[in-house]
Design a protein around this nucleic acid. Structure first.
Length: 274
DNA sequence: TGCCAGGTATCTA
DNA sequence: TAGATACATGGC
């Protein structure tokens, strides 16, 4: 990886890194198209990122800020070629998905944001998930200026009522949001503790929260807690499993980074690549 | 207009 | 224990 300070930002030259694939692959919900790039909020900061012929450009970024947070957020210290080499090389479909979607970086997202976002995502489509989360941030998150808002804290949401959440139009998920927020705010659900657990124990702990099933738990564990073996199975992945792998398929056969393989397959299957 | 969406809880046999 | 059904809402 090579990092160059440009006039007004940083240019990241790195294999296996595409802003478009990273932000469009369905792992996060707070980035939108902005001209020739993407703009969004993470870690209470607004950032703009563009693909260029010369690499990925992060607008207004300093090397110090990059090293302090964003290098890890974009998972840039991971060797993706080595990771992909752990996949079963005889799996032609997976190899094709990796080849077509190899610019995906699995973002190291905030655990709380990932957990709540995927609670909202259940039985929902991505445009509407983004809409609900955007409204939730606008109503209950701190203003960051220019119409951007931070993701609301668990403490803030825990103090709300179902009536407060009505403008979100999030349906039957509203009580799940309040219950999860209360669990986290009270310390009953210790997110740092979950991160320190084994994958099996971490999943078991999340499944004990009402509104969190196997799919939401695995999404949170993969995207927010750094468990690369977590393998979320949604309608799209079920379709891949059914069409390509047959009944009785064990995701563990993809290896220790099965979750990454899942993300390549999910993005490839949905056909929203660029 | 009807199907479907990055599912889960609950009921029923 | 496994399969069926209800659930809110709106994108397409």
């Amino acid at each position: 990886m090579e990092i160059l300070q440009k006039n007004d930002g940083l240019l990241i030259r790195c294999d296996s890194f595409s802003a478009a694939q990273t932000f469009l692959c369905g792992q996060c919900f707070r980035f939108d198209r902005d001209g020739d790039g993407f703009v969004g909020v993470a870690n209470g900061r607004v950032i703009r990122v563009s693909d260029t012929d010369d690499g990925v450009f992060i607008h207004g970024m300093t090397a110090a800020d990059f090293d302090a947070y964003w290098r890890h957020y974009f998972d840039l210290d991971r060797d993706y070629a080595a990771l992909q080499a752990t996949f079963p090389q005889g799996d032609a479909h997976l190899m094709l998905a990796v080849r077509e979607c190899g610019g995906i970086r699995l973002l190291n997202q905030d655990p709380w944001e990932a957990l709540l976002s995927f609670i909202i995502s259940q039985n929902n489509n991505i445009p509407r998930i983004k809409g609900v989360i955007k409204n939730m941030c606008r109503l209950f998150g701190d203003s960051l200026g220019d119409g951007f808002y931070a993701f609301p804290t668990a403490e803030r949401l825990a103090g709300l009522t179902l009536t407060d959440l009505e403008p979100l139009r999030c349906g039957y998920r509203a009580p799940y949001i309040l219950e999860c927020a209360a669990d986290v705010a009270s310390g009953r659900l210790d997110l740092a503790g979950v991160r320190a657990m084994s994958y099996a124990d971490a999943k078991k702990r999340l499944l004990a929260v009402k509104g969190i099933g196997p799919k939401v738990a695995d999404c949170a564990l993969l995207f927010g807690f750094g468990f690369g073996q977590a393998f979320p199975v949604d309608t799209w992945v079920k379709k891949v499993m059914r069409d390509r792998y047959g009944d009785g398929f064990d995701p563990a056969s993809f290896g220790p980074y099965a979750g990454f393989a899942q993300q390549y397959l999910f993005y490839y299957e949905r056909g929203t690549r660029e």
